[in-house]
Design a protein around this nucleic acid. Structure first.
Lengths: 264, 264
DNA sequence: CTTCTGAGG
DNA sequence: CCTCTGAAG
């Protein structure tokens, strides 16, 4: 049994002040992938950087206060690797892999952008490079008989059922035709969207609600956090939940943890 | 009877969220001089920009989020003037005058600096220019039979009794020999430190406690907020209080209001 | 609306 | 330690 959680914490320091550590103490997950830690290891309190019972792998961004991914695991990883061989992105705190027996778990934070801005161009460059890496990763997994799951904030809603307001967002970054097409390619290249495979019907479950306006209270959310896995894992996935907070004030991030149990 | 308060609000927007408006509603002051408003008029909520029963004169800095002085008064001023004729400082939100019958009330926010930094050089340039202006202001007051009081954050403790830890601060900006000498000059040129004249004994009353460490709880304060007045007002000053908050959490600024009643 | 930063205090 | 800012989300 392997239970995997992924959550964009929107600042690990802020999250820790608002309840992340209580969630961590209560979770049954074996591995937790985090995104947007937005901190150097030295900036984190001890209880966050090295919580008892967990091994922690951190990949901060070279730009202070930006991005940053991490993987916490009850078992010590066999190997830890940062980046995916990209000159542009390997120091940007967006990708981290940990190997466990028979399975590689990755934490991904795909750039977010706004249409017509340099950040959106960056997102597109990332998608291109990372897509190629995913193909390579899969080939190596097949060759070595390992499974792979890439957990994280992909910053793209795949289909209309993956966001509350798809009509209003047809021209919004995160739901652009080219972004959706890219995800489709990923999902047709030997990787599967595990939550959707367990819950074929939408709408949702959403995993992100903007802090702006009343998005959370109106459940005006997006499903942009995924566990994207190779077939051996998909076949063994038994349960998926999005741990939506009970109320606005009980949130410690604008994203909710996406947790999947694998009979592995 | 004229009651005058002066207080560095350390961000009028923040202060308003923490109790400034309640203090305003309860004060018996007729005129309130404020410093470090740190806001453009448009950034202020209506209840702060135009509270009922008050006339408000604002002199924001041209640099957003910095400095800024204001004068609130129950009576409408006869005249309002910003700056003191300085090319360098007139747009910096550091000086504002309001005329009332027989008396000119000014709100002053003297720059603060750190030894060896450009800000300290700026403070020194300000002291020099403003010292000359004070002499001129006094001459005009004498000639026209008006009184003058310059209220504000002068960012200088005058004597050893004016801060808790004078020995440790002999080389600190705000208690440098040259700054203290400058204040002595002011106080020997026809202006008087009204609070000290009513309370000749120190230590204190302090008007500022750093937010750092336990300065407030230890009463490790500085007296840097003054009402500096011409003789006709000094002679009529009957009572002076520093409205130190009852506890750390009840503060809405790191400074306390300094309130003087004049039998005028 | 929130989290960072860095300047300023 | 606190309040702004501006970038970012």
């Amino acid at each position: 049994m392997l239970t995997l959680s992924t959550v964009n914490v929107n600042g690990l320091r802020a999250a820790a002040k608002k309840g992340f550590l209580e969630w961590l103490a209560g979770t049954g997950a074996d591995v937790i992938c985090m995104q947007e830690t937005r901190a150097e290891p030295d900036q984190l309190p001890e209880a966050v950087r090295e919580p008892g019972g967990w091994h922690t792998a951190l990949a901060p961004s070279s730009a202070k206060g930006r991005a940053g991914v991490a993987i916490y695991s009850r078992a010590e990883p066999e190997d830890v690797r940062t980046g995916f061989g990209s000159a542009e992105f390997d120091e940007s705190g967006r990708y981290l892999e940990c190997d466990f027996p028979g399975v590689t778990v990755a934490s991904l934070y795909l750039p977010s952008g706004d249409v017509g801005t340099p950040r959106q161009d960056e997102k597109e460059r990332f998608m291109k490079e990372f897509g190629e890496y995913l193909a390579d990763l899969r080939e190596r997994a097949v060759a070595s008989g390992r499974e792979v799951v890439v957990c994280g904030d992909w910053n793209i809603a795949h289909r209309e059922v993956d966001l509350k307001n798809w009509k209003a967002n047809r021209k919004s970054a995160g739901f652009l035709p080219e972004e959706r097409a890219w995800l489709t390619e990923v999902f047709e290249s030997g990787y599967t969207d595990v939550v959707r495979s367990l819950h074929p019907e939408g709408p949702g479950p959403y995993s992100w609600w903007s802090y702006r306006g009343k998005a959370f209270d109106n459940d005006s959310g997006w499903r942009i956090d995924y566990q994207v896995a190779t077939p051996g894992l998909v076949a063994r996935a038994t349960e998926a939940v999005v741990e939506r907070a009970p109320s606005y004030d009980q949130r410690w991030s604008d994203h909710a943890p996406v947790t999947v149990t694998y009979d592995f």
